[in-house]
Computed example of a mutant assay.
Amino acid sequence: MGTDRLDEVLDATYDCLTRYGVRRTTMDDIATAMGVSRSAVYQYVRSKDDAFRRLAGRLHEQALGRARRAAADTGATYRDRVRGVLAAKLDLVLELSGDSPHAAELLDDKARLFGGICTAFTSDLHALLTGLFAEAGTVAGIEPADAATLCIAQVMGLEHSQDARRLLPLASDALVTAVLGVPL
């Protein structure tokens, strides 16, 4: 299967998602957006559901890649590394929500099509954060996994703020300072 052509299918799927949403998008819509026949689309995806699952997987994997790079950046402070992980999640949500109210459907962890992808993404972020906090050493009484849970909850709360990108550094710095016991 040609990856470039699959990427074109997923790009067309995203275009349709932003216009119509998951339920109203058809394989014909995806084919039209690509300028090909419906049978050509079926060479790369089995169904509309498969196209949306792959699209959600691609977007979450790209965000997870950004989070992994941030976590692995040993030249940065722990505060910046944690913020980078959280920014990857926040940016995914804000970009999808900003493109269309329909695009946010790809973030629904209870959705039949991509709930597992969303849940796995959050679990992977939690594992990255837990590793960072274990490596840095948290203050007495705060377990690294608990610190990671607090960070995830914090960024999820910011997802609904009008000023989320501006507030993320302030919020993450405050939390990391408290958890690691280091001054700003």
Rank of each mutant, 00 (worst) to 15 (best):
M1F: 05
M1C: 03
M1D: 01
G2I: 10
D4F: 10
D4V: 11
R5N: 10
D7W: 01
E8G: 10
E8I: 04
E8K: 12
V9Y: 00
D11V: 05
A12K: 07
A12N: 08
Y14P: 03
Y14M: 13
D15K: 15
C16L: 09
L17T: 10
R19N: 01
Y20H: 15
G21H: 08
G21V: 10
R24E: 15
T25W: 12
T25S: 15
A31L: 09
T32H: 09
V36N: 00
V36S: 02
V36M: 04
R38A: 07
S39G: 01
V41D: 01
Y42M: 14
Y42H: 15
Y44K: 04
R46S: 15
R46M: 11
S47H: 13
D49V: 13
A51Q: 03
R54I: 05
R54H: 09
L59Q: 11
H60L: 03
E61N: 12
A63I: 02
G65D: 13
A67I: 04
A72C: 06
D73A: 15
D73Y: 10
T74V: 14
T74W: 06
T74C: 07
G75T: 14
T77V: 07
Y78S: 04
Y78H: 13
D80N: 12
R81T: 09
V82M: 08
R83Q: 15
R83V: 06
G84H: 05
G84E: 08
V85H: 02
L86H: 00
L90F: 03
L90V: 09
L92D: 04
L94Q: 13
L96C: 06
G98R: 01
D99T: 09
D99Q: 12
S100E: 03
S100P: 03
H102Q: 02
H102V: 00
A104H: 04
E105Y: 03
E105C: 07
E105P: 07
L106M: 10
D108F: 09
G115R: 05
G115T: 09
G116N: 14
C118K: 07
T122P: 02
T122M: 07
T122Q: 12
S123N: 13
S123F: 05
A127P: 01
L128Q: 03
L129P: 04
L129K: 04
T130L: 00
G131A: 04
G131Y: 01
F133M: 04
F133G: 04
A136G: 03
G137M: 12
V139W: 08
I142Q: 10
E143K: 06
E143Y: 03
A145D: 12
D146G: 12
T149D: 09
T149V: 08
T149P: 00
T149W: 00
C151P: 01
A153V: 11
Q154P: 01
Q154Y: 02
Q154C: 15
V155A: 01
M156R: 11
M156P: 00
L158Y: 00
L158M: 08
E159C: 13
E159G: 05
D163L: 10
R165Q: 14
L167K: 09
L167Y: 00
L168N: 06
P169N: 08
P169Y: 02
L170Q: 14
A171R: 08
A171H: 12
A171E: 11
S172L: 05
D173C: 11
T177D: 14
T177G: 14
V179Q: 04
V179N: 02
G181V: 11
P183T: 05
P183V: 03
L184E: 14
